[in-house]
Simulated assay, not measured.
Amino acid sequence: MATPKKTSNGKWHIQFMVGACRESGTFDTKSEAAIWAARRSTELRLLGRGKGGEIKTLADAFDRYTKEVSANKKGERWERIRLAAFQTPLHYPLNSNKKLNSINSSDIAAWRDARLLKVNKTSVAREMTLLSSVFEVARKEWLWVDKNPCIDVRKPPKGQHRERIITGQEIRGILRALGYQRRVTSVGCSIAHCFLLALQTGMRAGELCALKWPDISIAGARLHTSKTGAGRTVPLTPAAFKTIERMRGFDGDSIFSVSPQTLDALFRRARTRAGLEGFTFHDSRHTAATRLAQKLHVLDLCKVFGWASTTRALTYYNPNSEDLALRMSR
């Protein structure tokens, strides 16, 4: 144990290391400094140690978080992919083999700045939120660290939300590329009908892919779970009912019989074949919201789309200035 040293102003200063963690303090008396150092060194030796007494690394935290926390989330797949990526050179200079209790805010800031050179601000902010959550669980529940270093680091400002509306010409082009026909005989044609229902209802890709025939009734399409974790019933117009009915006979259980990953991959390929760009399947939700906003009160729109706050409508309602000017002149 280090020995307290008297400073020029009569105080007692003490400094010591536990692993890679350096601690220091200044006190009025030599005994106070010694008592504090003994207590603090014991805390540091206990803190950050797990089974077997070893000091845990950031990789250890990622692994445990993946198994115990991410596994219970709806976005488990997203978190697993990103937590695994944190342990690759993509996230240099963040070193996952570094002792968890030696990582400070400067390390996080250096990682943030390096990531901003590779991906956009929104992605970095999202990754910082996940990283902070790992440290927070390690601090509160596992007692592996006594501080979350992400708290003292500025997140990048939020980027502008997407305002992409899919035009009628683009809709026709993507439907042709997917092989749309009234009688569904292929996966591509199933995705075409799924895309149409997305435009008619505003449902997300994951919600559409999870639909089963017992979920459809006169009341609408019953979603047992959604992005927010809560279920809801989406009302169906006659046109939406017709789109669903055309799927009869394609699969006896699942309506569209396709996973969100397959839907996304085949939709992108069809978009490329059609010579189109600049929009994704999820932009159908923006398109549907913008169309339905002209017919529904904002509170009704929030119920249909599953938004807990009316401010979400401003993100998805994206009319162009020409349409607004036309309606203002009526």
Rank of each mutant, 00 (worst) to 15 (best):
195 F>W: 09
178 L>R: 05
132 S>G: 15
137 V>Q: 12
109 A>N: 04
137 V>K: 15
125 A>T: 02
122 T>F: 02
149 P>A: 02
201 T>V: 00
191 I>T: 05
172 R>E: 13
198 A>V: 05
117 L>F: 01
130 L>P: 08
139 R>M: 15
197 L>D: 03
133 S>F: 00
198 A>D: 01
156 P>H: 08
176 R>H: 07
157 P>K: 14
102 S>W: 01
199 L>T: 06
176 R>F: 01
148 N>H: 03
124 V>I: 04
180 Y>P: 01
132 S>Y: 06
195 F>Q: 01
201 T>Q: 03
153 V>L: 14
114 A>C: 10
165 I>W: 00
157 P>N: 09
153 V>T: 07
129 T>I: 14
141 E>S: 14
115 R>K: 11
149 P>C: 08
114 A>Y: 07
153 V>E: 12
112 R>V: 03
135 F>Y: 15
111 W>P: 02
186 S>I: 13
114 A>W: 03
161 H>I: 02
173 G>I: 06
187 V>D: 02
109 A>F: 03
116 L>V: 05
134 V>M: 07
118 K>Y: 01
166 I>N: 12
159 G>L: 03
153 V>C: 13
157 P>T: 12
164 R>E: 11
182 R>F: 01
155 K>W: 01
129 T>C: 08
167 T>F: 04
157 P>Y: 01
129 T>F: 00
172 R>M: 11
126 R>E: 03
162 R>Y: 08
136 E>P: 06
184 V>L: 04
102 S>G: 06
182 R>T: 11
140 K>I: 13
152 D>I: 07
152 D>S: 15
197 L>R: 04
196 L>R: 15
115 R>W: 04
129 T>K: 12
107 D>P: 09
163 E>R: 14
135 F>G: 12
133 S>R: 12
159 G>D: 02
150 C>F: 13
151 I>V: 15
193 H>N: 10
143 L>S: 14
125 A>N: 09
177 A>E: 13
169 Q>C: 04
166 I>C: 03
152 D>M: 15
183 R>I: 15
162 R>L: 10
146 D>W: 02
174 I>M: 04
184 V>E: 07
117 L>A: 14
111 W>I: 07
120 N>A: 14
150 C>D: 04
148 N>E: 01
107 D>K: 13
158 K>S: 12
201 T>F: 06
103 I>Y: 03
164 R>K: 12
189 C>V: 03
165 I>A: 08
153 V>W: 15
128 M>F: 08
200 Q>Y: 01
175 L>T: 00
145 V>S: 09
192 A>L: 03
118 K>C: 11
171 I>T: 10
148 N>Q: 07
108 I>Q: 12
174 I>S: 00
123 S>V: 14
150 C>S: 09
151 I>Y: 13
150 C>I: 08
126 R>W: 02
158 K>I: 03
123 S>K: 13
117 L>E: 15
153 V>S: 14
168 G>N: 13
103 I>F: 03
138 A>N: 10
105 S>T: 10
138 A>I: 09
179 G>V: 08
199 L>A: 00
